[in-house]
Nucleic acid binder design. Sequence first.
DNA 1: CCCGCGAGTAGACAGCGTCTACGCCACCCT
DNA 2: AGGGTGGCGTAGACGCTGTCTACTCGCGGG
Lengths: 194, 194
Amino acid sequence: MDVEETGLRARLVAAGVDLVLREGQAALSLREIARRAGVSHGAPRRYFPTHVDLLSAIAREGFADLTARVEQTMRDAGPDPRTRLAALARTYLDFAAAHRGMFELMFRHDLLDSGRLRLRETSLPLFAVLADLVAQVRRPTDTPAPVLAGALWANLHGIAQLWAWGSLPLATDAHDDEALLRAALDAHLGPTRH
Amino acid sequence: MDVEETGLRARLVAAGVDLVLREGQAALSLREIARRAGVSHGAPRRYFPTHVDLLSAIAREGFADLTARVEQTMRDAGPDPRTRLAALARTYLDFAAAHRGMFELMFRHDLLDSGRLRLRETSLPLFAVLADLVAQVRRPTDTPAPVLAGALWANLHGIAQLWAWGSLPLATDAHDDEALLRAALDAHLGPTRH
DNA sequence: CCCGCGAGTAGACAGCGTCTACGCCACCCT
DNA sequence: AGGGTGGCGTAGACGCTGTCTACTCGCGGG
């Protein structure tokens, strides 16, 4: 049995993932995905009642991919929580930069709060890893660990967002992204000690 | 002469601003804007060659509004740079929360890098104010002021983004937004001294 | 054997952005 | 004063989109 022929549903999602990685979010029309999957434009409707249901499934694949990468990073990184956090942050930003279309899709709020697809929950384990590391590396400040983790995540997300469309006016140096990331980590976790 | 009748161009932008504030970004179809402005669907074409040109003009109005609010905040806030920064941050987040649709529109990258509309430049004075304040309040760390300002802006932007779709898993308390903002400010600028 | 039903097809429909051909009215020039 | 001209908005067409519905085909069970 050919493992590639396992149902149209999976083929549609795969085609969508391929499409968004290759051509970006704007190319993700329902009809185009159906075309790439080799079926008529009405076929997806049996598995995905609406267009955003299909898009949500594709976005979930993106979250799964990101989670897998982060887990791999956590496996490869050393024991020091601070460097583990830095590696996690780098992975997050690299993912956003390398898969811009997918990253945008993953955080389209009209997908996130559409129905009970529980796309939001998909990002929760990721946050848990971050929060855990933050709790380990945290200096004894008065900021509670979950809040600190949230603030740091927001910072990472903002950096990804802002440099994705290259809008940071301080883009004088090619290595500004690296500097920005270090600044964020230093700010939230304290400067690196060596 | 009626000051309200000054050209279709302004009327279209005004209708668009009204529409995005009232119904959100998804309602901003070219034809709907034309309808609200009381003209046929082909009329906008004379002033805006394409749909995104019109959207960009609307987004620019949003940047102008935000800039005006920030300037007002700077006029009202006291002399202490730290509290001025806090007020600026609060204004930024309040704007994002109150005008979600407009905020999303303003940062749609397909508008930002579309042509020479220089939407990007519109946000530059805003950043200048932030960078200036950061330079004043900065502790003598090794992080250069522009980088620090960029990191802080990214943090604000990320907070706005993340809590806009309520995805922060730590939403246990209604006042988490406030805590998140304080955490970000404390992290980048050092804890408030009193 | 034939019935039924799951799965995908095909066509219709309204709405969209873009393009083009066409009126209309105001103004300027001789 | 009359006639041309050009700007401004209309109206319809085109191909695309998402959704809905009627249908066809093939396979398995009573």
